[in-house]
Amino acid sequence: MKEIVIISGKGGTGKTSITASFAVLGGTNVVLADCDVDAADMHLLMQPDFGNEHDFYSGELAYIDQSNCTRCGLCRQICRFDAISVIDGEYVVAPIDCEGCGYCARVCPTKTIINKKLLAGKWYISNIKTGSQMVHARLETGADNSGKLVAKVKDEAKAIALGKRKDYILVDGSPGVGCPVVSSLSGANFVVLVTEPSVSGLHDLKRVHQLVKKFNIRAGCIINKADINPGLSNDIKLFLEKENIAHLADLPYNEDFTMAMTQGETIVEYRQGTLTALIKESWEKIKVLTNQNKIK
């Protein structure tokens, strides 16, 4: 079983559409994991049945039990996040400001403050239209994506893949360069970087690749909308060459991506054209490279 992670650093590069296309091409042999939980959109293309729902708890939140509170005000004094205020004479915690550091609970003289596990969202195991399964999540507003949720989603996908003897897990990775993306990458056999030839696209590609390098994971790159700025596309290719990243494909600027999405389809289902051919070719290359990625 191999784990392939698709990341992009910057948003809006077509990462999710491309991942979904690979999932369709891989069919029943691919378990999907949507770890882009900040903007979890994969379900819009995969017709999940949300069959199996679970609560996800992460971090803590201070809670003040009013019946035992002596209104001494110590908690409010020590809180650096201004998360405790007095409303109608009662000390209350604003969940949006509380960082869950637990300091107030430690100093409360009557031990009336407790740290509650914070319900950060939900995660699901769904049957999807490819005949396979997908693990995905939804965060509560204001909840932070964390390495823990990403690890959870990936673990569940891995368990399914092992149990049902699937060859691949496809992970739609988290954005940015922080803890969630580290967790997305951790354990991967191959990384697909999706980028676009814009000043910010190249900049973000370089940043996220630093992480990939650190984890010693073999990587390939798809340049989406490559023809929109040939000069920058060329700069990206030079960077790929220098860093020994496999150049998987140049995808042309094409509104079929959006048209397909509007139908709730991936591009490979929507139209059999150049774009679909290029994506199919990329997927074949990825499979070869992933399986070549043998132990050094």
Partner: peptide, 8 residues
Amino acid sequence: VKNEAHGA
């Protein structure tokens, strides 16, 4: 440790 949100 695996179930910690941060600092694993």
